[in-house]
């Protein structure tokens, strides 16, 4: 377990196919602990699939994957206890209020002091006024925020975000940045995809560029290697 401190996610030759469609061809990747990693790539490059694999929603066909040094297939529940995810769909019950949705998540997460916890988390993402509203009546951006609140409620050491800025206004993006910064300062790991590449590169410690289910670039210093990343990203985009 010595590597637990340095490597959050380690992927070796990870493959995922859907019939004749290859989602991930052969992914080798090491994501260090305590930083923000952004996944870049055009649509269908495998970003979302990779996030779903990390969230254990998708089973890999072959290869090895360890999260915090734990083998994915064997220790599912203990990995998931330390993972929070806000993916593409908000994953909320439309006919329940925001509070009920969070309450439900808190009870399947077996968290203590649920009421205070829910209020505190709601405050962090700025939805404390909307707790009694039905989720169905909320805008897409607000639903995203509720989804984010659910993901960070149990303060997981690994946070997975799929395009978290989409649908958010400027102030909310700032709040998101604060949450992400808070994660980094607590030596927790954030893995996210983004379509606002400039903003992504500002907050990222590591950047990964994907194309056709392969990793084509991995940078540990996105600020200085910015142009290389932009080039790789542009070459991917040009092929679309």
């Amino acid at each position: 377990m010595t590597q637990t401190n340095t490597i959050a996610i380690k992927a070796e030759a990870v493959v995922k196919n859907y019939g004749a469609k290859a989602a991930l061809r052969s992914i080798d990747l090491e994501i260090p602990t305590g930083g923000v990693t952004i996944l870049l790539g055009s649509n269908g490059a495998g970003k979302s699939t990779l996030l779903r694999v990390f969230a254990m929603l998708t089973r890999i066909d072959s290869g090895n994957l360890t999260i915090h040094g734990l083998e994915m297939m064997k220790e599912g529940p203990s990995i998931r206890a330390n993972t929070g995810a806000a993916l593409h769909a908000p994953m909320l019950y439309g006919d329940m209020s925001v509070r009920e949705n969070l309450m439900f998540s808190a009870s399947i997460l077996r968290l203590p002091r649920k009421d205070t916890l829910i209020y505190e988390t709601a405050e962090k993402v700025g939805i404390q006024d909307r707790l009694e509203d039905r989720v169905r009546s909320l805008s897409h951006g607000l639903q995203k925020k509720v989804s984010l609140a659910r993901a960070i409620m149990h303060e997981p050491s690994l946070l997975l975000l799929d395009e978290p800025e989409s649908g958010l206004d400027g102030r909310s993006v700032n709040q998101l940045d604060q949450i992400i910064a808070g994660y980094r300062s607590h030596n927790r790991t954030v893995v996210m995809t983004t379509h606002i590449i400039e903003h992504g590169l500002e907050i990222a410690d590591h950047a990964v560029v994907l194309q056709h289910g392969n990793v084509i670039l991995m940078s540990n210093d996105p600020i200085t290697e910015r142009s290389a990343i932009m080039n790789a990203y542009a070459s991917v985009g040009a092929k679309l």
Binding site: A55, M56, L57, G76, P77, S78, I79, R80, A81, N82, T83, G84, A85, L87, A89, P90, M91, L92, Y93, G94, S105, I108, L109, R150
Partner: peptide, 14 residues
């Protein structure tokens, strides 16, 4: 339809 099944799957329950 609301992909809430995935929320259940992410939760640390068997």
């Amino acid at each position: 339809e609301s992909s809430t099944l995935e929320a259940l799957l992410i939760a640390p329950i068997s």
